[in-house]
Design a protein around this nucleic acid. Structure first.
Length: 876
RNA sequence: GCGGACGUGGCGGAACUGGUAGACGCAAGGGACUUAAAAUCCCUCGAUGGCAACGUCGUACGGGUUCGAUUCCCGUCGUCCGCACCA
């Protein structure tokens, strides 16, 4: 065999140039073949690509290359999610302009991505920070505004004191900013909102149809949208001490059946009535003040006791005007869910029970578990929220929860208070509107002008884009746009008078909510989309990215697509037909004796039997091998893709990323496994080099009558079938395993000491087919190696442009089939029978087997189960 | 607390809708080639008993359904993820 090693460093740039020169990956919008849109979540240009990118883009590239070979018009673009805080932080720290910082990073990362050999259409590259992109985003903002999908309102917002900006609910994790990690504060600000809640019902219901999404993501979105059905009940205030302007309190409940167990009503501290009462009641005012200091962090919520204050108000029970309930303000009632007020049924709600146990209001059980004697059913410290039948509830007694719920709803719908019904069925959602205002410079300006006389005035479309000024200072915290000397001072487009620009910019999640649509025609300067193009190229057929976007980005994009539909920019509801969430790249951690983390490049690992020990290369001191964790700079367990590509080549990195773990699970990066991948690359090259001179031209007729040739063909087409199916299902690790096996088979053929390839024309012809197919099978994963092998096999074309081999299914079916024979479920023998054998024939043949006879020991068998083409089981 | 996923050799993992458990890779051990090393090639590799043929056990644990269970059902334990005072 050839001793010449495959030289990735020489080969890879050569093939990349060739693909580039021939523009084979640029996609034409007028191509009439069926389209297939493959998209990986576009990167934030942080500086350099990391292994997570390598994994993500390799997976997408395999799908893109495979679908291209299968004859689809594949759209596989790349761009940059280029606005965001880090650019401003860099500006503050290093005195570089966010724009130049961003574009320099893009240039670096583009070069890195190109060195991976991705089949991307770079002619469609976009950066969201480019005015040619955000111009259209501003246009859509104005369209959404006109369509009533944008709202400006004062609201309590999550304020990140470190980044000095507002955060959406989705961006607050455990009470902390998702980026800064700072404890989030509550502030009252006037903000722009996208009315995502208009689509709550649709966003929820449509999840059922997204059957090519992971269940996990759908479940997370369902929980986030949080639909619950219940009853809105209006409680009349006891006129004796009701405030002048108020005669009722509205509450929302999902348990109207427990109405006879009510002990109190409770208002949120933020409820308008609470605030009203505070004006004349110092005790209430003091309580509200106390509540405003309670944190929103999870720990604060868990440890805060249930507290309240009796307002002195009383309400009348809807079914009994003589039954009066006290009205409290309570710290555990949320203003932004339901009506901001509840009725408390302590026996069947733990929070209510904790509350009454503090204030001594008692409880009355009204739902009794089946089989329990109502007379002995007592609630003390644990509320009962299970099934049962109603007790202590007058006309509801004996009903199930569902029956009682329905009965209460019916009666209260029929009853009136003033001239409106007392009860009203209502559906509530947890999902809030999406606050998009950010007090930052490096974002898309909100195209609005505030005029003293005209109020809020949209920037006329002809004046778009509203461009960011470039002369900007980052010497102080806060929004630099607001401090700019001239930028915000403009004339009102309506009256011409003095006016002020909106200085807030949009949340960067707006930028990424429609980029997939822009990729379909990034050249259109007049509109965000070109309708006859976007409607044909979308939806994205396969979207690939990290699970961390399960709610934020994926929910926003689903909303944005609907809003674009409502404003005529697209005809589509769901942007992503198939979604795949890939796992992380993780690595061992290492610590020196001093306890500091050490990077993998600084150490050497040696084996003593199964023991692994590590030492520091520089000093020889021992290093502790720590747990496997997500690659991160702080743990110093990162591996730079550039180093790997320089040492082993992009194909090795790609192959490794696909091989070890299922793509949705974490993959452990290890030096040994990378070397395994590298071995495969070299092995394929050696094999092809050795075989090429012995093979007849492609297309040479094969004599299937030759048993060795037939066997090889069967192996070839089995591999083709298995690998194709694995790629279709995104099971890259099993595709890789099949390729390893098939390469092993080819190795046996080439390495056979009898050298039949040189002497057996039929086998050589079958081997030609086998090698051609093998190279095509590896082409989506290791495209450079595949091109090199394809050329070595005498092809004048590019394997990247070759059609996927045609499967000959007849080769996969043999005349005979070997069935395992079990006795009582344990395998004892094999039997080879004709494929068309009748069950009775098989049964007789099996019973005649020596192994079966001896296992039965002369005793009769009970029965024989024959599963055709699968297995035979003898029941003794 | 609620919801979801998962638990298979020394390790990553495979096993289509219940049908030969451990494919493929990594690590390890033995051997060939070499002056030597690297590279490459061959063999072994779940546990246990046996010289061997072969047998027994084995997919977190305990039950169940079935001719047959890693797969389905019930319970227990553990790990991970998401949400969380949502009425």
């Amino acid at each position: 065999m050839s001793n010449e090693r495959y030289n990735a460093r020489d080969s890879e740039p050569r093939w990349q140039r060739k693909w580039d020169d021939q523009q084979i990956f640029s996609t034409r919008n007028d191509d009439t073949r069926p389209k297939y849109y493959v998209l990986e979540m576009f990167p934030y240009p942080s500086g350099r690509i990391h292994m997570g990118h390598v994994r993500n883009y390799t997976m997408g590239d395999v799908v893109a290359r495979y679908k291209r070979a299968k004859g689809f018009n594949v759209l596989h673009p790349m761009g940059w999610d280029a606005f965001g805080m880090p650019a401003e932080n860099a500006a503050m720290a290093n005195k570089v302009h966010p724009k130049s910082w961003t574009y320099e990073n893009i240039a670096t990362m583009r070069t890195q991505l190109k060195s991976m050999g991705l089949s991307l259409d770079w002619s469609r590259e976009i950066a969201t920070c480019d005015p040619s992109y955000y111009k259209h985003q501003q246009r859509m903002f104005l369209d959404f505004l006109k369509a009533g999908l944008v709202e400006r309102k004062q609201s309590k917002v999550n304020w990140d004191p470190v980044d000095q900006t507002v955060l959406a609910n989705e961006q607050v994790i455990d009470g902390r900013g998702w980026r800064s990690g700072a404890l989030v504060e509550q502030r009252e600000l006037t903000q722009w909102f996208f009315k995502i809640s208009d689509y709550s019902e649709d966003l929820l219901a449509s999840l059922d149809r997204l059957d090519r999404w992971p269940d996990k993501v759908r479940t997370m979105q369902r929980n986030w949208i949080g639909r619950s059905e219940g009853l809105l009940i209006r409680f009349a205030l006891d006129a004796a001490n009701a405030p002048a302007a108020t005669s009722e309190i509205k509450i929302f409940t999902t348990r109207p059946d427990t109405l006879f167990g009510a002990k109190f009503l409770a208002l949120s501290p933020d409820h308008p009535l609470s605030k009203e009462l505070a004006k004349s009641n110092p005790a209430v005012a003091a309580f509200l003040e106390e509540c405003s200091h309670t944190g929103t962090a999870r720990e604060a919520i868990e440890t805060t006791e249930k507290k309240g204050i009796d307002t002195g108000l009383r309400v009348l029970h809807p079914f009994d005007p003589d039954w009066k309930l006290p009205v409290y303000v309570a710290n555990f009632v949320l203003m932004d869910y339901g009506t901001g007020a509840i009725f408390g049924c302590p026996a069947h709600d733990q929070r209510d029970l904790d509350f009454v146990n503090v204030y001594g209001l008692g409880n009355t059980p009204v739902v009794c578990p089946e089989g329990q004697d109502p007379k002995t059913f007592v609630i003390t410290d644990t509320a009962y929220d299970g099934d049962g039948r109603l007790i202590n509830s007058r006309f509801l007694d004996g009903m199930t929860i569902a029956e009682a719920t329905e009965e209460v709803a019916k009666r209260l719908e029929a009853a009136t208070l003033g001239n409106a019904p007392v009860g009203e069925r209502q559906v509530n959602f947890r999902l809030r509107d999406w606050g998009i205002s950010r007090q930052r410079y490096w974002g898309c300006p909100i195209p609005i002008i505030h005029c003293e006389t005209c109020g809020v005035v949209p920037v006329p479309v002809k004046d778009l884009p509203v461009e960011l000024p470039e002369d900007i200072e980052f010497d102080r915290p806060g929004n630099p746009l607001d401090r700019h000397a001239s930028w915000k001072h403009v004339n009102c487009p309506q009256c011409g008078g003095k006016a002020r620009r909106e200085t807030d910019t949009m949340d960067t999640f707006v930028d990424s909510s429609w980029y997939f649509a822009r990729f379909t025609d990034p050249w259109n300067e007049d509109a965000p989309t070109t309708r006859n193009v976007v409607d044909r190229m979308l939806p994205v057929d396969q979207y690939i990215g990290g699970i961390e976007h399960a709610i934020l980005h994926l929910l926003y994009s689903r909303f944005f697509t609907r809003a674009m539909k409502a404003t005529g920019h697209i005809d589509l509801d769901e942007p992503f037909d198939g979604l795949f969430t890939q796992g992380m790249v993780v690595h061992e951690t290492y610590k020196s004796a001093s306890g500091a983390f050490v990077s993998p490049a600084e150490i050497n690992i040696s084996h003593e039997g199964e023991q692994r020990t590590a030492i520091l290369l520089s000093t020889g001191e021992p290093v502790t091998i720590g747990p496997i964790e997500k690659m991160s700079k702080s743990k110093r367990n990162t591996v730079d893709p550039d180093d790997i590509i320089a040492t082993y080549g992009a194909d090795t990195a790609r192959w490794f990323m696909l091989s070890d773990s299922p793509p949705d699970r974490d993959v452990i990066w290890s030096e040994e496994s990378v070397q395994g991948a590298s071995r495969l690359v070299q092995r394929v090259w050696r094999l092809v080099s050795a075989a090429a001179p012995l093979l007849p031209p492609s297309g040479t007729a094969i004599d299937n009558g030759n048993p060795a040739a037939k066997a090889l063909r069967t192996a070839t087409h089995q591999a083709l079938a298995d690998v194709s199916q694995s790629i279709e299902r995104l099971r890259f690790n099993t595709a890789i395993a099949k390729i390893y096996s098939f390469v092993g088979t080819l190795h046996e053929v080439v390495d056979d000491p009898k050298k039949p390839l040189a002497n057996d024309a039929a086998l050589a012809a079958a081997a030609r087919e086998a090698f051609d197919v093998m190279v095509q099978l590896i082409a989506p994963m290791t495209p450079h190696l595949a091109e090199e092998c394809w050329a070595a096999l005498g092809h004048q074309t590019l394997v990247s442009e070759a059609a996927w081999p045609k499967l000959e299914e007849s080769l996969l079916v043999s005349d005979t089939v070997t069935l395992p024979v079990q006795i009582n479920g344990k395998k004892r023998a094999d039997i080879t029978v004709s494929r068309s054998a009748q069950n009775s024939e098989i049964e007789a043949a099996v019973l005649a087997l020596d192994a079966v006879k001896s296992a039965l020991g002369g005793k009769p068998h009970k029965k024989v189960i024959v599963v055709p083409q699968r297995i035979v089981n003898v029941v003794a």
